[in-house]
Design a binder for these strands. Structure first.
Lengths: 218, 218
DNA sequence: CGGCGGAACTTGACGCCGTTCAGATTCCTG
DNA sequence: CAGGAATCTGAACGGCGTCAAGTTCCGCCG
C-alpha cells in the first residue's frame, strides 16, 4: 500500500516524497478524503483522519485549506465534475432528444448508487457544508450540470424531437424528478420493509418518473 | 420563558420541578432539541447543548435515550408525523383526485420551506442517522406518508378522476418528483446566482413538476 | 413509620474532534 | 551562501459523545 502520495503525481519536478515537505499534499489530502469517504462513509470523514491517511500531522491541512469545510467543498466540487462527465458521456451515446434525457437520467441515478456517500455529501443538507454560497467554484460546477441539461432540452426542441415549450420548465421538472429518485434511493427512502412489500425499487421509481416526463414532452 | 419543563406537562402527579428529579425529562429533551435545531440549525444540535437547554447535566439524556442518534431519530419521527398531518389537512380541503395531489405536493414543499433544518435531518443523508433501519417507529411513520399518497391515487383512479393505471407507479413518480423539488429548494440547489439569472425558483420547479405529472395522469 | 431498592440525575473522566500558534525544517530567490 | 517564504510539527484549547461511579429522591414492603 504505502502512502497516498504516489496516487496523484507531483506538480512539476518530482520532489522526493520522504523529505520534510510532502510535495503535493493538497492533492494527497483530497485523495485521502475521497478514499476515506468511500470506505468509511460520511461519519468517518474527519480532518485528523485525512491527515493521518496522508501521513502528515493534524495541522498540516491548514496550509492548504482554510477549514475542513473548504476541503469537503473541493471534494464536493469534484463530485459534481464527475457527475457531469458521466451524464455527458451517457448522453453522447444517444441520438434523439428523448433518448438523451433518459440516458442522462439513468447516469444521474447510477452515480448516486455507485457513490452514495459522495452523493450524500454533495447534497448533504447542512450537515457538512453550512452554506455552499461562499464556494463559488462549487456552485458553478454544480450549476454546470443543470446548464448541460438545459442545452439538451433546448436542442431537442429545436430539432423537433421534443414537443415545443419552455426549455427551462422542462429541464427543471426533469432535474427535480430525477434528483428526487436519486435522493430517495440513496438515503433509504425505499429501503424499508413496507416499501419492499409494495415492490418499490429505485429502478421502478425512475421508470415511473421517466414515463411521466416523457409523456409530457415527447 | 423559564425552563422547558412546563412545556409538556408532567406524566401523572405534577412533581415539583425544582427537585433532584426532573419529572418529564424525556419530553423536555425532545422539545429542547427541536428548539435548538429551529434556531441554531443542524450544526448547533449537540447532545450537551440539548442537556444544557433542558437544565440538566450532560449525562442525563442517557437515561432516556440510548444515544444521540436515538434522540435525533425520535425528533425525526415527529417530523414525519407533522409532515403527514400537514399533507393530510391540505388534502382534505380538496375534493377531486388531481386537486388532492396538488394540495399534498404544495404542503410537502411548504413543510420543507417552513422547517428546513428539520426536513434536512429527516432526509439528511448519513449525516446524523447512519442507518434508519433500526428505528422501526421512524421508518413506519415515514412510510405512512407514502401510503397516504398511494391511497389518494387509488381512490382518485377508482372515482375516475385520475386516468386508470398502476397506482403505485403514479404515487412513486409523484413522490419522487415532489420530493426532488423540496430537497433542491431546501439545500440550496436553486439558491445560486446563475439559477437566479435563469429565473429559477422553487415555486416554478414545483409548477413544472406538477404540470408534467398531471399531464400524464389527469 | 422506617428503611430499602431502584430510577433519575450529577460528577468526572476518556478519547476524538476542529482549530490555533509558536517553532522547526526545508525550499527558493537573489 | 544568506535570508525570506513556504511547509510541516507538537502542543494546546475547548467542545463533543459516551461511560462508570457516586448521589439524591421516590415508592413500596415490612
Amino acid at each position: 500500500m504505502g502512502h497516498d502520495t504516489d496516487a496523484v503525481g507531483y506538480p512539476e519536478r518530482m520532489g522526493d516524497r520522504d523529505g520534510y515537505h510532502h510535495g503535493n499534499l493538497k492533492e494527497a489530502l483530497i485523495e485521502a478524503a475521497r478514499a476515506l469517504v468511500a470506505d468509511s462513509g460520511v461519519q468517518g470523514l474527519s480532518l485528523r483522519a485525512v491527515a493521518r491517511r496522508a501521513g502528515v500531522s493534524q495541522a498540516a491541512p491548514y496550509h492548504h485549506f482554510d477549514s475542513k469545510e473548504a476541503l469537503v467543498a473541493e471534494l464536493c466540487r469534484r463530485g459534481f465534475e464527475t457527475l457531469s462527465q458521466r451524464t455527458c458521456a451517457a448522453m453522447e451515446e444517444a441520438t434523439t432528444g428523448p433518448e438523451r434525457l433518459v440516458a442522462m437520467a439513468r447516469a444521474y441515478v447510477a452515480f448516486a448508487r455507485d457513490l452514495p456517500d459522495l452523493f450524500g455529501i454533495m447534497w448533504g443538507g447542512k450537515g457538512l457544508i453550512a452554506d455552499k454560497a461562499p464556494y463559488v467554484e462549487l456552485t458553478d460546477t454544480a450549476t454546470g450540470s443543470f446548464e448541460q441539461l438545459l442545452r439538451v432540452v433546448s436542442e431537442g426542441m429545436a430539432a423537433g424531437e421534443l414537443r415545443a415549450g419552455d426549455p427551462l420548465e422542462v429541464a427543471l421538472a426533469a432535474w427535480s424528478a430525477v434528483h428526487g429518485v436519486a435522493v430517495l434511493a440513496q438515503d433509504g427512502g425505499f429501503d424499508n420493509p413496507k416499501m419492499q412489500d409494495l415492490g418499490v425499487t429505485p429502478e421502478r421509481a425512475l421508470e415511473a418518473v421517466l414515463r411521466a416526463l416523457l409523456a409530457g414532452v415527447a
